[in-house]
Design a protein around this nucleic acid. Structure first.
Lengths: 350, 350
DNA sequence: ATGAAAGCGCTAACAA
DNA sequence: TTGTTAGCGCTTTCAT
């Protein structure tokens, strides 16, 4: 490895001169800078970040901590952040937690030990106290999910609004037996989405016939099974709204496999707008979330915050609005349906 | 930050004792190790990797360099590697090149400057000479794509075989006017796939009626446009085989949008087996690639190689076989079709 | 079984 | 404008 000393030796100047020249220090003459640059290039010099870090400067590494990068939400985020941080000469490191707080802790430990410039995290449901302690010492931004103990910096999506819109759409189409398939309320996102769902049916005729299937949000299997259970009911729902991408994917597979006619028998509103949702059956009506924009906003803010380098940057949080994309998988309950099915339900309710 | 010295001070021993205890050095008494561990935990000590690295030890960072993490190939790889490396206490850093050799160079520079333990890379078509030089100094494994200048370590897929199988399937179904949509031959993968396609039609009646649409493999738009062009031909193909995931996705969207009946009018073989390909129209017949397994194998090998820490590890490369998954989007040319269409083609060929 | 001390490559305070 | 020197936290001889 060629070091600053090697360059200094070759030019017969001191190491600090070279160091300063490389750092574009105003005290160094242009001529010297020029020469240093040349020799550095010639010898193939690359800074040793480790050494630099020992002088207190934090690294140019930014930790991204997500549950699973295969989830397109997170790969979209990783991409957007990577692009964004690149312009500030920052490198992204990737850590996957699998939604396990111990794995999360291990990764956070790792990240602190390499002195990351900061951490952008989609936290697990209840982070380990030690994780919390470590994150307090770093500049940390939360993404999508928000956990109070991890500080005020948060970029997220209005999950309540998302499910409210989705469900409202079904209510307005006249659906009364509406089911929700989504994550449990452990995660703040799960709770918020469920709340949106309830908010939308509240006060409508649908309120009495609502059914929830809550499970692991990151599992396609759960989505599949939930659909199966719903279809097996004596009076199955006429519409279903999904509360997570994976659950949606599982549900779509099951619906496709079981040959249920959508939207004739069942209206479906998905969560997220994955590639392929457009061509699922009649086209999936779904909630589209501005994930990429969110991540970019987060990255920009992170860089900004880093530049300030004030010990306690102003807390900031932002919520982005979701959009409902209406395609073919939802329609108004048919007259026949409306007279037959609700009659049954009414009995149940009464 | 609590350092080794702080622990030493508290225990009233020397820093080296603490260091050794933490490193589980055999010369330290069990009792001392015990005490050191306790105090370290108590004070919340985390190693300073930068300091450690200055002592010559390379970091626990492994650079993963891919074109675009949103591509599910690469996110699958990132996931598998991350899981795999985690067990060896290694961290993955993520770099996206966008298939731009200058961006690639920047990232590789960055990675060398943080002294990564190694780099796992899906190289661009023609890496910059400086990139090549830098990579020579690191332990580097190539994934999927292979560039001779980057050494012998490579884990990939038999691309030729993949397209051979896919195309052969169509030939055996009696198709004669078969089109190929895929990447240009700049990339070794593109060249290999095209070769597989040609190999499969060679000697068959289809050989004379083959048509190629070569473009950007990472572009869904190209797939969309290519399909449009093919359908507009006076004598359009009866079957099409795809040579990249994104091209496939674009093609599927276009076919869905334009309402072409598959497989009646056109048989389609996709590339890769994405979530959603199963439910596209009649189910997409496609080439499934063992990407996750590949990445795991690569990760395991990387760890193995790291442990050897011999200067020149034995070069190794491995090719994994693809599998053809037959679903509804391909079928034998109909009798009517077989008599009508080829008649036309034969005139063209004659 | 433990301690003292040197030094990794770089930066920054202090000198010249 | 450039040089000298100290020290970041850790590992690793060499001593004890």
């Amino acid at each position: 490895m060629v070091t600053i000393k090697d360059i200094a030796a070759r030019l017969e100047v001191s190491a600090s001169t070279v160091g300063r020249a490389l750092a574009d220090d105003p005290r160094i003459s242009a001529a010297m800078k020029q020469k240093v640059q040349e020799v550095a290039n010639d010898m193939g010099y690359v800074v040793n970040r480790a050494a630099r870090m020992m002088r207190g400067v934090s690294s140019n590494l930014v930790g991204l901590v997500v549950p699973d990068i295969r989830n397109s939400f997170y790969s979209t985020i990783a991409h957007a952040l990577s692009k964004c941080l690149e312009s500030a000469d920052l490198q992204l490191t990737l850590s996957e937690t699998d939604d396990d707080r111990l794995v999360e802790l291990r990764h956070i430990r790792e990240l602190t030990s390499v002195n990351v410039a900061g951490i952008i995290i989609v936290p697990t449901a209840r982070p380990h106290p030690e994780s919390v302690r470590l994150l307090k010492m770093t500049s940390c931004i939360q993404l999508l999910r928000r956990h109070a103990s991890l500080g005020e910096h948060w970029f997220g999506i209005d999950d309540t609004q998302a499910l409210f819109q989705a469900t409202r759409h079904l209510v307005e189409l006249g659906h009364q037996r509406i089911a929700y398939i989504g994550g449990t309320t452990d995660l703040p996102t799960g709770a918020a989405r469920l709340q949106g769902f309830h908010g939308a049916v509240a006060g409508s005729k649908a309120a009495a016939h609502v059914r929830e299937e809550l499970g692991a949000p990151a599992s396609t299997d759960f989505g599949r099974d939930a659909i199966r259970r719903l279809l097996a009911l004596r009076s199955p729902p006429t519409a279903v709204v999904l509360g997570s991408v994976q659950n949606t994917q599982g549900a779509l597979e099951e619906l496709h496999a079981s040959g249920v006619s959508v939207p004739e028998t069942l209206s479906v509103v998905g969560f997220g707008d994955e590639l392929g949702f457009r061509w699922w059956g009649p086209g999936l009506t779904t909630i589209s979330l501005p994930v990429s924009e969110l991540a970019t906003a987060c990255g920009l803010w992170f860089i900004h915050q880093l530049k300030q380098k004030s010990a306690n940057p102003a807390p900031y949080s932002s919520v982005s609005p979701p959009t409902l994309v209406v395609r073919g998988s939802t329609r108004a309950v048919e007259a026949a349906n409306a007279s037959r099915a609700p009659a049954r339900s009414r009995q149940l309710a009464g």
